[in-house]
Design a protein around this nucleic acid. Sequence first.
DNA 1: TAAATATGTGTAACCCGTTACATATTCATG
DNA 2: CATGAATATGTAACGGGTTACACATATTTA
Lengths: 331, 331
Amino acid sequence: MPTIKDVAKLAEVSTATVSRVLNGNGYVHSETKERVAEAIKQLNYRPNDVARILFKGRSKMIALFVPDIMNPYFPELARAVEDMTNQHGFTFVLCNTDDDLNKEITYLEALKQKSLDGIIVVSSTMTEEYIQNIDVPVIALDRILHRSMASVTVNNREGSRQAVQYLKDLGCQRIAHISGPEQASNATQRLEGYLDVVKEESWFKESYIEPGEYHFEEAKKATERLLTRHPEIDGLFVANDLMGVGAIKAAESLGIKIPDQLSVIAFDGITLGETTTPTLTTMAQPIYKIGARAAELLIQQIEDRHHEIHSEEFTVELIERDSTRRKEDHP
Amino acid sequence: MPTIKDVAKLAEVSTATVSRVLNGNGYVHSETKERVAEAIKQLNYRPNDVARILFKGRSKMIALFVPDIMNPYFPELARAVEDMTNQHGFTFVLCNTDDDLNKEITYLEALKQKSLDGIIVVSSTMTEEYIQNIDVPVIALDRILHRSMASVTVNNREGSRQAVQYLKDLGCQRIAHISGPEQASNATQRLEGYLDVVKEESWFKESYIEPGEYHFEEAKKATERLLTRHPEIDGLFVANDLMGVGAIKAAESLGIKIPDQLSVIAFDGITLGETTTPTLTTMAQPIYKIGARAAELLIQQIEDRHHEIHSEEFTVELIERDSTRRKEDHP
DNA sequence: TAAATATGTGTAACCCGTTACATATTCATG
DNA sequence: CATGAATATGTAACGGGTTACACATATTTA
């Protein structure tokens, strides 16, 4: 690999001049510039990023922390972050944290040693104390970590209200909820949205809420329990699509017909919901957009440390598919 | 951030001694070692990886190139590579190439400037010429790129034969195939496996093969075309699970009952196949294992450049689910 | 007991860029 | 024409580690 010295020698200038040509700063005579450019081309020289990083203390590297990339919500998010990251000349590092604070800390320490520029975090586990100690720009994504930290999220509570209201409008009389983990801010917001609509109903019972932990299998079991205990349930709001698919599977195994006997609506809008039978009605997040926006905000903050960053909230949108009865199907 | 100089000053030794303690090489008196360790702890010192990388010319960074992380086969693979990568103290970089040679090249150049140690590649597009020019350890995964390059794959041809034979054993009389892109080595191998079993059959026609490009939507359309043109088909071998789900959807939309009228078997063994109705019978790859093994081999090669690397082939295994008729259901 | 070897530690060069500073030349302006 | 500003380029320090080499002392070995 040729170095800047080789280029300097060939072009008969100092390394400083080569550096100036490379970075386009300082004064360089146009003829000199051409000689240097020629030498660079001839040697097929590429500057060593590591040396640059060492000097500048910036790596042009961004990490995305997700609980687990195998949850199909995250690949789309990761894709968005990666695309935006590349557009700005940054390198993208993906970290699966398994919702484990120790893993998060280990990753962060390792990356700091590599002069990481910033991170985007989807986490339910980071403690406030630890958050304060991170001296790297951070943006929370999908879930709020702490009011002191900028975040990009969706209107979980309002979206959930709309989802439940949609079930009511379809004529559902007893609407239950499969909830996410209570440590996740978006899960509690979705639960609150559900409660906003149903808590004053005469039929509402606490036992209409069953925890599904945002996991497929867990949600399947939860739904089986729920529907066995409460056969009167005719509407189900599930806190995310992955669990929604689990709920469909559970109903199927119990011989309950969707949407005829039970309408199911979930939350997220991942592609998985299109592949089930029946397809899954959902409150869709603009997943790619929020991922891309989070990356954009982070990069803004990295490039201008004084840039005020505010949190942003996107809006979810109802996608009607086959797991909910259509109004017109209903007398 | 404290540097090695700060530690040296506090411990009243030279930076060389601190370095020796850090790396556990050279001679250091046990008392000195303790003083240094104490200073490190007191300052909460962590060595700057960038400086190390610059000197060593090794970044302890591994990249995984995949066509698109949104294809559900890849998250599991990525997860495996990342886990193994971490176990060996390497950093993991994920790159989506969109099966685009330019993107692959751009990524590779960018990463080389960061002293990337090695890459694991899932690609159908890399040209032989380009492969020869990569002066970084590479392992091909899932698809063979070139005989000169070590790879970790599965027995695609034999597995496909088994899949098609399985359909025959169930009593299928007319077995068609939805194929993957012909540039992908595993797609052609799977096609060959299919042909091995059916090409001598009197009923076999070339038009029983329909290209699905490893894409969900494409496969759905392909299956619709196929089943409309050839209503006699009662068995379908689909080159991967993602397309298998598309095939199920297509049959559903045509009112063809699976498995009663049509048995479908696919290839890969991704979780997606468990969520459909009916669930998808498949030849399952040990996805996590092959990903982990590829990472292991790559790391071996990185740490010992002269280490002979051989290709490895894993075995696929039939997972019987609901998209194929059970033998006992059949007279 | 002298020579050979092992142990312990520091100095300084090196990895490869960037940039503050010094110096030289050219140009514009009063 | 003198003077300050703009242009052009080089020297050397710097970022934060690692390690070859030199040197000193301690321990073996013959």
